[in-house]
Design a binder for these strands. Structure first.
Length: 235
DNA sequence: ACATTAAATTCGA
DNA sequence: TCGAATTTAATGT
């Protein structure tokens, strides 16, 4: 049999993960235990679906660890990536609250650890917990600014700015409380997020590197100046 | 689209 | 188990 000398790091338990999450940290322990018990956890391999467009939304979904993209396929089969989601992201609350079908496919871009909070539990939290509602408002507000900013960039700005914004959005503290400055995305995946070809993403990334905003590494990059990256705006 | 380079995997002692 | 050889993936132009 083979042995795996490298990856022997113990994963934190689901309960610990939830307790440290942006919303779980606001809840009393007994509530959190109830939520943990109801929540199921899955590992999703890179390339697999986390959620399927058209399926009923029965869960609020948390990305404990990994990277995931939201995308839609149009009727003629064209694929468009709408947004990437990094570790610590909680999403899908919109469809759950409206008790409707999922609007987007969610694909794992790398192996991911995912938590599924049942809709009933989610609704119970909404009915009973003030702090949880406060968190939800903050989350939805952060998402709103993200998408408005996205539209703005998409329509008015050039490729380097779109790439810059796509990267900056991955460090949004409201959406990803535990984000590190190391973004483990290859240039292909950066291209997907900014809606540009891999080759063009490469050129844009090098421009951003020359400006001192990021440092390129193999298989990823390091964010050096998040503020200037966020504000970077050229037509 | 092609060339280069870094990383991962296989192979042979 | 070590390092050289080969394959594969990411990057740069």
């Amino acid at each position: 049999m083979r042995s795996f000398p490298r990856e022997q790091i113990q994963e934190p338990s689901l309960h610990d993960v939830l307790r440290q999450s942006a919303w779980g940290s606001r809840l009393p322990e007994d509530v959190l235990i109830r939520v943990t018990d109801a929540t199921e956890e899955r590992h999703v391999a890179a390339g697999e679906l986390v959620a399927r467009a058209g399926a009923p939304a029965r869960h609020w979904i948390g990305l404990i660890d990994g990277f995931v993209k939201m995308s839609v396929t149009s009727r003629d089969g064209r694929l468009s990536t709408l947004s990437g989601l990094a570790s610590g992201a909680w999403f899908g609350e919109g469809s759950v609250m409206k008790a409707e079908q999922r609007r987007y496919d969610v694909f794992a871009l790398r192996d991911s650890r995912v938590a599924f909070v049942p809709a009933e539990t989610f609704e119970w939290l909404r009915r009973t917990s003030f702090p949880f509602n406060h968190y939800l408002q903050q989350l939805m507000n952060a998402r709103m600014s993200l998408f408005i900013g996205l539209l703005e960039h998409d329509r008015l700005l050039g490729v380097e700015s779109r790439v810059a914004h796509a990267l900056a959005s991955l460090l949004d503290p409201d959406l990803y409380p535990f984000a590190s400055d190391v973004v483990k995305l290859n240039q292909d995946e950066v291209g997907l997020l900014a809606n540009v070809s891999r080759q063009r993403a490469n050129v844009a990334l090098q421009t951003l590197q020359a400006a001192g905003f990021i440092a390129l590494e193999r298989g990823g990059l390091r964010i050096l100046d998040i503020d200037r990256l966020r504000e970077f705006s050229v037509p």
